[in-house]
Design a protein around this nucleic acid. Structure first.
Length: 272
DNA sequence: ACCCTCCTGTCA
DNA sequence: TGACAGGAGGGT
């Protein structure tokens, strides 16, 4: 469900709420999430809450029997939610999959479809290999061009590859390509330098704007207080097939690429 | 580069 | 009933 702006929203909220609090226990309610390392969780302090791509990372400090730090990594996938217990009213308790019990309260992991992940790691290096963060200093136009290299994959599915650039998902990929006036079917390696420049600039602009608006809510996204974002009001093409393009008034189209919907304006978005 | 799969739910 | 859902790993 959540893409980079939604995950960033959650991390910014959880940071002040969780930092400095002490862990009591990690309870697992879905056997898919079972991990032997959960026994290492109690008696630690939450030191930081951070985002790694679309993953939410809690750094836990040492405890009495282990002076090494420990990482809790959540990936919400399609329908995961991280909710602080004081905001749990309104959640469907049937979908509660795990609970980080703190000395005073808890952090609840709900996940309707059960695609989400909860990892307990000794080192963040064990997390999935990731590409560059689009909002980070390493994301330059030339780096983007390097990452694309000779890939003939259509640019829209290319943007979803987390081993190249992290954080983009189905909504923002369509929105970014509309803002960049690039046809989503264009082979990535055929983008010219103007298009690459626009793609780079619009990626960062749209993600920042979405973060300012606390992300996008359709049906599933809620932040850690169980609230919704507002960027859905600013979406130009996503889920708008048949509606007029905000730029040219032509009809927005929906196509399928790699089994996923893509929305675009065939008049405004060009191959080159 | 494609197809399927993992799950559960909603909507036409 | 079938299509679809903001993700991603695996197989061919």
């Amino acid at each position: 469900m959540p893409e980079l702006p939604e995950v960033e929203t959650i991390v910014r909220q959880l940071g002040p709420v969780l930092t400095g609090r002490r862990t009591r226990e990690l309870k697992i309610y879905d056997r898919k999430l079972e991990t032997g390392l959960k026994e290492a969780v109690p008696g630690r302090t939450v030191e930081t809450v951070s985002r790694l791509g679309k993953q939410i990372c809690l750094a836990l400090g040492p405890n009495g029997s282990d002076r090494n730090p420990l990482w809790l990594v959540f990936h919400l996938r399609m329908t995961g939610r991280l909710i602080v217990d004081s905001d749990r009213s309104g959640q469907n308790e049937r979908h509660l999959r795990a609970e980080l019990v703190l000395e005073d309260g808890s952090l609840l992991f709900y996940d309707l479809r059960r695609f989400g992940l909860l990892l307990v790691l000794r080192s963040l290096e064990e997390a999935a290999p990731l590409g560059i963060d689009p909002l980070g200093p390493r994301c330059t136009v030339s780096r983007l061009a390097e990452l694309i290299g000779g890939s003939t994959t259509a640019i829209k599915p290319w943007l979803l590859r987390q081993d190249r650039i992290v954080g983009l998902g189905n909504i923002y990929a369509s929105e970014i390509l509309f803002a960049s006036a690039i046809d989503p079917r264009t082979p990535a390696c055929r983008l010219d330098s103007d298009q690459l420049t626009r793609l780079h600039r619009q990626t960062r602009r749209i993600l920042r704007l979405a973060i300012e608006n606390c992300g996008t809510t359709f049906s599933d996204f809620q932040d850690s207080h169980g609230r919704t974002g507002s960027f859905q009001n600013l979406l130009k093409v996503y889920d708008r097939q048949g509606e007029p393009c905000p730029r040219c008034r032509g009809a927005i189209e929906r196509i399928v690429q790699q089994q996923r919907s893509t929305y675009f304006c065939p008049a405004c978005q060009k191959t080159s």
